[in-house]
């Protein structure tokens, strides 16, 4: 088990290097001059060159990459061109916020998705199944930024129950687990949970239906297990796949929260990414993309390790 985890960890290294190269290249392939945002339009060519050198943009790309990579390894992501603050510092704050939002949304989505999925799978082709399946289709198909705005209109504007934006009283600030902060989390987290809820529900429904049609379920009934005993077996058979789907969904949420974070002005990585793109803030952009990509890599690792812990067939064969 531990050996398997270590082995998987070593496989991550080449992937991580590849990811870092792609991140670096993507940003430099994109059109636009990063210095536009800091230089006045009428800056002299001399000044332009000076600034360019200061940021290291005059060196060949491979050299720039290795300098950047070397710094990143030491935790130095450079300085934001737009704000002048350390990228690492901005990232740390944003990552914390995004992580919290995504994890809470994934948990909500996973719990509801499993509930709907199991019920639909067990009572297949009944009215209950139809309702649960309908909800999950809606969950997958509704554009979540639109849903976010609708929820804001209902719960913030009309009912005035929950705040529409920010991650705490007075904008961002430091997070605390009290009602003043948590009420800021509710709308974005619920909005975000809708897609994983739908996907998990559909996956679990198909899984349960498939497992129930397998012969070993007859075998379990034939040895006299009660329904709850059979259910236990179904859950354990479904768990590895359901958890894998959840892990991937968490990855999507971490990397793809840009729309929701923009709608709710949630100070996370998606919000930061949006800012970095619009301001052509290359160091910030590289840092955010790298972190988001690494989220995905490590989540895949975690999913694999967890699956092997749950499903005896994965690691031993």
């Amino acid at each position: 088990m531990l050996l398997y985890a270590l082995k998987r960890l070593i496989y991550v290294l080449p992937v991580a290097v590849g990811v870092s190269i792609v991140c670096f290249m993507l940003v430099h392939i994109a059109p636009g001059d990063p210095l536009i945002s800091v230089l006045p339009p009428d800056a002299s060519a001399d000044l332009r060159e000076q600034i360019r050198r200061a940021y290291g943009f005059d060196k060949p790309l491979p050299v720039q990459y290795f300098i950047w990579l070397g710094n990143v390894m030491q935790g130095d992501f450079g300085t934001s061109i737009a704000t002048g603050r350390a990228v690492a510092e901005e990232l740390a704050k944003a990552v914390g916020n995004t992580l919290m939002l995504s994890v809470v949304a994934t948990i909500i989505g996973f719990v509801l998705g499993c509930l709907f999925g199991f019920v639909a799978g067990f009572f297949r082709d009944t009215a209950v199944d139809k309702i649960a399946s309908f909800i999950s289709v809606i969950g997958v198909s509704v554009p979540h930024y639109w849903l976010g705005m609708v929820l804001v209109i209902i719960f913030s504007v009309q009912l005035n129950w929950l705040p529409a934006t920010g991650a705490g009283p007075g904008g961002s600030g430091v997070w605390e687990w009290d009602w003043a902060h948590v009420r800021h989390l509710i709308l974005p987290a619920v909005t975000m949970s809708v897609i994983p809820m739908g996907i998990v529900a559909r996956t679990v429904r198909a899984l349960v239906a498939d497992i129930l049609s397998q012969e070993f379920v007859q075998g379990l009934k034939a040895k006299g297990l009660f329904d709850r005993g059979v259910l236990r077996h179904v859950v354990k058979n479904a768990a590895p796949t359901a958890l894998a789907v959840m892990g991937l969904q968490l990855g999507y949420l971490l990397g793809g929260s840009i729309l929701i974070e923009t709608v709710f002005s949630w100070p996370g990585t998606g919000f930061l990414l949006g800012q970095a793109i619009f301001q052509r803030d290359i160091p910030l952009l590289q840092g955010v993309i790298l972190v988001l990509a690494m989220f995905f890599v490590f989540l895949n690792l975690a999913v694999d390790v967890m699956q092997s812990a749950l499903d005896p067939r994965v690691q031993r064969s």
């Binding site: 397998q214 012969e215 070993f216 007859q218 075998g219 077996h233 354990k236 749950l310 005896p312």
Partner: peptide, 10 residues
């Protein structure tokens, strides 16, 4: 077929 009739994860 005992492969199909036994639960693979127990």
């Amino acid at each position: 077929d005992p492969m199909l009739a036994l639960d693979p994860v127990y």
